[in-house]
Design a protein around this nucleic acid. Structure first.
Length: 825
DNA sequence: CTTAGCCGGGG
DNA sequence: GTGTACGGCTAAG
C-alpha cells in the first residue's frame, strides 16, 4: 500500500504501545498499525577513573534493579557521540512509553550513572525518526488487512528515502480542507459554555472542495441560499460532524480554534450530553493543555489553527481576523463586535442577516488564509519530518531543534538534554553584542544604493564552521587545538574563541545541506522562468519550498543563542555576531576608503551609500571587488536604488524609490491609538520630504496642523483616540483615559463590555490626562484641549523627523525661527 | 530603573 | 502524554 502520512498517534493494548498512522491513500484512505516499536533511552555511565563502575557493572545494576511492577526489557552497550566526542552509552529498552518517567527516575539513583539522555522524546516523534518516515510524503506499507481500511504493518518505509518531496501533490498538498467558524449567543459578555443561554447559534463552513454554508437554527427573512436552517443547537452540531464525516476532510481549520471554537463546542456537548464524532475513528475533541495554551487534536485529521500560524508569519499590530485579512489578503471585512452578536440574533431581520454574512465571511477568509500559508507549513513538515499538527504550532526554534534531533539521532549523535527553567533563566542573563548598526547621517539624502549580505548569519556559521563541537576557548587549546595557528586563522574577531576546521561541525553540516538544497531549487526556478514557466503549480511549490528552507536556515543563529535550546552555546552565537560585524564594517571601509563613497547608514547586514547617477558603474565595481575578497559563501548583493531617504535615528528611516514607492522603517509610533490628526500629519510630512519638498514646507504642514488645533478648525474624528477595553472596568488597577471614558459611558446608561473599542477625546481642565477623557459620544467638540493635542500628539509624532532636518520644537510650536538655522532654509 | 504580572485571539 | 509557550507591555516596587 502507498499513502500520504497525514498524522499518527499511539494507543495501548496489553501494556504494549501500538502506533496508529492515518494515511490518505491513492484511492481510499487507510490506517496502519505498527506494534513493533519499543521506547528506549540512553544511560551514560561514569567514565574511566571517575568511579570503579564501568558500563558493564552499570548494565548489570540496571538489569538487576527492582522498579516495581514494570521492568526493563533490555540494556545494550553502544558507541555514540556527544557534541562530537565518542562516548559509551547503555541503550535501555522498555515496554511502554509511560514506563519511561518511572524507570528513568529509578535509574538516576543507581551508582555509576552519570547522565540519562533522550528520555523526553515523544513516542510518535521518536517513531518517525527511527523509521525514517516523513509526514505528508508517500510511505510504502506492507502488511495484512485486519479490518476494513486497517492494515497491520509488517514493513514500512518512505517511498524515496531521504526525499520528503517525492511525488507530493500540489496546492495545500492535495489535502481537502474545511474551514469553519462558530457564533455564540452571549448576552452577558464573555460567553460561558456551561450557561443555559449561551448556545452555539451558527456554524459556518467553507471548503476547498466547494462547500460554502451557514448552518443555524433560526430562519432569515430574506432568501439566503447558502443558509441551512435546522431546529436546534443539537441539530447544527450533528450536521457539522456529518458534513465532516461525509467528506472525510483531511484538514479542519479555524481561527483561534485551539483556544475558543473547539473548547467551546466541547463544553456545549457536555452541557447537551452529546457526543460528536469528528475524528476519523469516530472520536471527539481532545484538548491537550500545554501550559496556558490548549491544543486541540481531532484524531486522524489535521486540525490547523490559523491564529498561531499568522502570528508567526506576519508582523502586525493586531491579529484580530479583520485586521489580518485586510493586511495579508487585502480584503475589507465587516467586524461585528462580540457583544453585538446576541442582539443581532434576537433582532432578526437585517441585523440577523448581517450576522449570517459575517459568519460566512469568517469561514471563507480562514480558508483563504489556509490556502496562502498552509503550503509553507506542509513544506516545513516535510523538511523537519514531524507531523503537520505539531509543526504548525512550533516556533522556529523548535523547528530547528526537531530537525537537529532527527539528524543527530540518525547520525549516531546523542541528543543533548533540555535544561531546567532555572538554567534557562540563567542563560537569559548571558547577553552578548549583536549586530553592528551605524549611526545614520541624520536628515535627507539623495541617490542611495543599498547593498546587503545574502543570508549573512547562515553563511558565517558554515564558512567559519561554528558549532559546539568545534569551539575552542582560548587557554583550553592543547591537543584539541591542533598545531599552532590552525585555530587562530578561524578566530572570532575580538573574542577568545576559535573554531577548529579539523572536521565539519554538526550544525554547519546540516545548515550547509539546507542552503545547498535551497540554491538548487532557486537554480531550477531560474531555468523554469527562462523557459516561460512563470506561474505554474510546480513553480509555486518550489518557491514555497525554497522559502521554507530559508526560514529554517535563518533560524540557526538565533537557535544557538536561544536559552532553552538543546544545542545552546552562547559562545557560538556570540561569535557569529562578531564575524558578521567584522564583515559589514569591512565593506563599509572598502566603500569609503577605496571607492570614496559616503556610507550614510547600515544595519547588521546592510549598507546604504550615496551613489550619484554617473557613479553607478563604480558601484558595480565596488560590489565585484568586495565579493572577490569575501571568503566561503559570504556574498554581498545589490538590494536596490532609492531616489531619496530620510534618516531619523538608528532603525528609524524612510525611503522612496525611483517609482515613487515609499518604505518606512521603525516609525511605528504611528499607531491606531494615536489621534488621526497626528498620524495624518506625520504621513504628510514624511511624504513631502521624500518627494523632495524643502523642509520648510514640511514644517508648514506641522505648523498648519497646530494652527488648526488652536483655532478649533478640526473635526471630532480628527481628535478621537481609540483604545480597546480589554477587561471589565472594575478589573483595571490603573485607570487609563479609555477606562475613564468607558465609566462615563456607563454613567449615561450605556452598556460597556470587555472587547469594546472606546473612542474618547481629551478635554480641558486641571486634572490629569486620564480624568479629562470624555467618550466621543458625549463630548462637545468645543471642550477639547488644544494643548494636549499639540504637546502629546502632533509634536511627538513629528518632532523626531523635523529635528532630523534641522527644526526645533520651539519653531514648530511657537513659530520662533532660530537665528542659527534660518540661513539653512 | 528593574521586576512581576497580564495579555493575546475568539463571541 | 518519554512535554508544559512566549514575547511584549504596563503597573508596581
Amino acid at each position: 500500500m502507498k499513502g500520504l502520512l497525514l498524522d499518527l498517534d499511539y494507543y495501548s493494548e496489553e501494556d504494549r504501545p501500538i502506533i496508529r498512522m492515518f494515511f490518505k491513500g491513492e484511492d481510499e484512505n487507510f490506517v496502519a498499525l505498527d506494534d513493533s516499536f519499543s521506547p528506549y533511552f540512553y544511560v551514560m555511565p561514569d567514565g574511566p577513573g571517575e568511579t570503579d563502575s564501568g558500563p558493564e557493572e552499570v548494565r548489570e545494576r540496571i538489569l538487576g534493579a527492582d522498579f516495581g511492577k514494570i521492568g526493563v526489557v533490555d540494556v545494550e552497550k553502544e558507541e555514540k557521540r556527544l557534541f562530537g566526542d565518542t562516548i559509551t552509552v547503555l541503550r535501555v529498552v522498555l515496554n511502554h512509553p509511560q514506563d519511561v518517567p518511572k524507570i528513568r527516575d529509578g535509574i538516576r539513583d543507581i551508582e555509576g550513572v552519570k547522565a540519562i539522555y533522550e528520555h523526553d522524546i515523544l513516542f510518535v516523534r521518536r517513531y518517525l525518526i527511527d523509521r525514517g518516515l516523513v509526514p505528508l510524503s508517500w510511505v510504502e506499507v506492507e502488511g495484512e488487512w485486519v479490518d476494513g481500511g486497517v492494515v497491520k504493518v509488517d514493513s514500512i518505509k518512505p517511498v524515496k528515502p531521504g526525499d520528503g518531496g517525492a511525488g507530493v501533490p500540489p496546492g495545500v498538498s492535495g489535502l481537502s480542507v474545511l474551514a469553519f467558524d462558530i457564533e455564540v449567543y452571549n448576552p452577558k459578555g464573555a460567553p460561558r459554555g456551561e450557561s443555559d443561554t449561551d448556545a452555539i447559534v451558527m456554524i459556518s463552513l467553507a471548503s476547498n472542495t466547494g462547500i460554502r454554508k451557514v448552518i443555524t437554527w433560526k430562519r432569515p427573512v430574506g432568501n439566503m441560499d447558502f443558509v441551512e436552517v435546522l431546529d436546534s443547537e443539537r441539530a447544527i452540531l450533528k450536521r457539522f460532524a456529518d458534513i465532516v464525516a461525509e467528506n472525510d476532510f483531511d484538514v479542519l481549520a479555524g481561527y483561534n480554534t485551539d483556544n475558543f471554537d473547539f473548547p467551546y463546542i466541547k463544553k456545549r456537548l457536555e452541557k447537551l450530553g452529546m457526543e460528536l464524532p469528528l475524528g476519523r475513528d469516530g472520536s471527539g475533541i481532545a484538548i491537550r493543555g500545554r501550559k496556558g495554551l490548549p491544543e486541540v487534536k481531532i484524531t486522524g485529521r489535521v486540525h490547523i489553527d490559523m491564529y498561531p500560524i499568522i502570528k508567526k508569519s506576519v508582523r502586525l499590530s493586531s491579529y484580530v481576523l479583520e485586521n489580518v485579512v485586510r493586511d495579508v489578503l487585502g480584503i475589507e471585512k465587516e467586524k461585528i463586535p462580540g457583544d453585538m452578536l446576541w442582539k443581532f440574533w434576537d433582532e432578526g431581520r437585517e441585523n440577523f442577516e448581517r450576522m449570517i454574512r459575517y459568519s460566512m465571511e469568517d469561514a471563507e477568509v480562514t480558508l483563504k488564509l489556509c490556502e496562502k500559508f498552509l503550503p509553507r507549513y506542509c513544506e516545513l513538515a516535510r523538511i523537519v519530518k514531524q507531523p503537520l499538527h505539531d509543526i504548525s504550532r512550533m516556533t522556529t526554534g523548535q523547528l530547528v531543534e526537531w530537525l537537529l534531533m532527527r539528524e543527530a539521532s540518525r547520525g549516531g549523535e546523542v541528543i543533548p538534554n533540555r535544561v531546567s527553567g532555572r538554567e534557562a533563566a540563567r542563560r537569559r542573563e548571558d547577553s552578548y553584542m549583536g549586530g553592528y548598526v551605524k549611526e545614520p547621517r541624520k536628515g535627507i539624502c539623495e541617490n542611495l544604493a543599498v547593498f546587503d549580505f545574502r543570508s549573512l548569519y547562515p553563511s558565517v556559521v558554515v564558512t567559519h564552521n561554528i558549532d559546539p563541537s568545534t569551539l575552542i576557548k582560548s587557554g583550553e587549546r592543547g591537543e584539541e587545538g591542533g598545531k599552532d595557528g590552525e585555530c587562530d586563522e578561524n578566530r572570532a574577531p575580538g573574542l577568545e574563541y576559535c573554531f577548529s576546521r579539523r572536521r565539519e561541525g554538526f550544525i554547519p553540516a546540516i545548515l550547509e545541506n539546507l542552503i545547498e538544497r535551497r540554491m538548487e531549487i532557486k537554480e531550477r526556478l531560474k531555468k523554469m522562468a527562462a523557459g516561460d514557466k512563470v506561474d505554474t503549480v510546480d513553480v509555486r511549490m518550489l518557491d514555497v519550498e525554497q522559502y521554507a528552507l530559508k526560514i529554517l536556515a535563518n533560524s540557526f543563529y538565533g537557535y544557538m543563542g536561544y536559552p532553552r535550546a538543546r544545542w545552546y552555546r552562547k559562545e557560538c552565537a556570540e561569535s557569529v555576531a562578531a564575524f558578521a560585524r567584522m564583515y559589514i564594517k569591512k565593506v563599509m571601509t572598502v566603500a569609503r576608503e577605496e571607492f570614496g563613497f559616503e556610507v550614510v547608514y547600515g544595519d547588521t547586514d546592510s549598507l546604504f551609500i550615496v551613489v550619484p547617477k554617473e557613479d553607478r558603474g563604480r558601484a558595480e565595481e565596488f560590489l565585484k571587488a568586495v565579493n572577490r575578497s569575501l571568503p566561503g559563501s559570504i556574498e554581498l548583493e545589490y538590494e536596490g536604488f532609492y531616489k531619496r531617504g530620510i534618516f531619523v535615528t538608528k532603525k528609524r528611516y524612510a525611503l522612496i524609490d525611483e517609482d515613487g514607492k515609499v518604505t518606512v522603517k521603525g516609525l511605528e509610533f504611528v499607531r491606531r491609538d494615536w489621534a488621526p490628526i497626528a498620524r495624518r500629519t506625520q504621513q504628510e510630512v514624511l511624504t513631502a520630504l521624500l518627494k523632495g519638498a524643502p523642509p520648510k514646507e514640511a514644517a508648514k504642514i506641522v505648523r498648519d496642523a497646530i494652527e488648526d488645533i488652536k483655532n478649533r478648525n478640526v473635526s471630532l474624528e480628527d481628535i478621537t483616540i481609540y483604545t480597546q477595553l480589554t477587561k471589565s472596568i472594575s478589573a483595571y488597577k490603573n485607570v487609563g483615559p479609555h477606562v475613564v471614558a468607558a465609566k462615563r459611558l456607563m454613567e449615561h446608561g450605556r452598556e460597556v463590555a470587555p472587547g469594546m473599542v472606546i473612542g474618547y477625546v481629551i478635554t480641558r481642565g486641571m486634572k490629569g490626562i486620564s480624568e479629562r477623557a470624555m467618550p466621543v459620544e458625549l463630548v462637545d467638540i468645543q471642550d477639547y484641549d488644544p494643548e494636549y493635542y499639540i504637546d502629546n500628539q502632533i509634536l511627538p509624532a513629528n518632532l523626531r523627523i523635523m529635528e532630523a532636518v534641522g527644526y526645533s520644537r520651539g519653531y514648530l510650536k511657537e513659530g520662533i525661527r532660530q537665528e542659527s538655522l534660518s540661513k539653512w532654509f
